[in-house]
Amino acid sequence: MINLTIDDKKIEAPDGATVLEAARLARIDIPTLCHDPRMKPFGACRLCIVEIGGLPRPVTSCTTPATEGMVVVTTNSKLERLRKTTVELLLSDHPNDCMVCIQAGQCSLQELAYRYGLRENRFKGAVRQHNRVDNNPFIMREQDKCVLCGLCVRVCDEVEGVAAIGFANRGFESDICPPFKKDLDCEFCGQCVAVCPTGALSGKMWAGQPRLEQTRSTETTCTYCGCGCNLTLHTHADKVVRVTSRPDNHNRGWLCVKGRFGYEFIASPERLTTPLIRRQKGGPLEPAGWDETLDLVASRLTAIRDQHGADAVAGLASARCTNEENYLFQKMFRAGIGTNNVDHCARY
């Protein structure tokens, strides 16, 4: 354990913690833009600067390890002036399109602009120009809104292991793009979209749909594969309009292309919404109610077991069900029917 003082508060932080982590443990607020605890610190946005006793100039708390006896100041007029200038500089090279931007309400930059009350800008000047190349099916890139926090580049490299995008050029003309400024051609996992603090990256299918704030969220599990990633379904008027995932779950908020973007089937008219029963041999499948269906299944299973013994029945489930569902399924077969003939594609 390390003992340090932050804003006059005595704090205990675990060994290896950064100053930012220590402050967050103690619920002390420090603004950040390029930080995500799931990735290596980058130190680029300069918003998390703090003063540390004995050091001649402010340092970034996200990169500085906490040390025993350290005395940290996270806010004073000097630090706030520097932060405000930084945000003002960012906004001077930004379309300030919040009114029609998908990220409004969720945007870290918008939040900072609000926090520092930046209605006017002292630094109006040239802005970066970008040619949009977006023929890919999933991801919209509006690089003029990019603050170059590097989160997308880092997630694609460090987490996804793909490195489909990277930094290009330098200085004011710096850019995030696929090699040779081509269209994105990658896994389309959307991890980059998920970590982008601004509206620079977004899902194409989200455009014009209600913003996140307008939606209701439901926690659930992805039905696509045995990984069982946790999902948050965002619905509006009973329609799923976006899927996200929380960083504090077992998949740490990471999803794949199916989980993140493959949600349109939920509202498909071709999807079955009631059970179907074939009442006559050779006859059609007819919609039925759940009571009728479950009664039918129960009575047929009981009849088979009574006539041929429990081992005449076998149950096959799916890895795409949740653990809880599969648990209940095997319980029903073992305790309810009395057979061990139960299996699924990922094995019990």
Partner: peptide, 12 residues
């Protein structure tokens, strides 16, 4: 080595 690394270096 991903092409993005090459491109990043070339343009830097």
């Amino acid at each position: 080595i991903p092409a993005s690394k090459f491109y990043g270096v070339i343009t830097f």
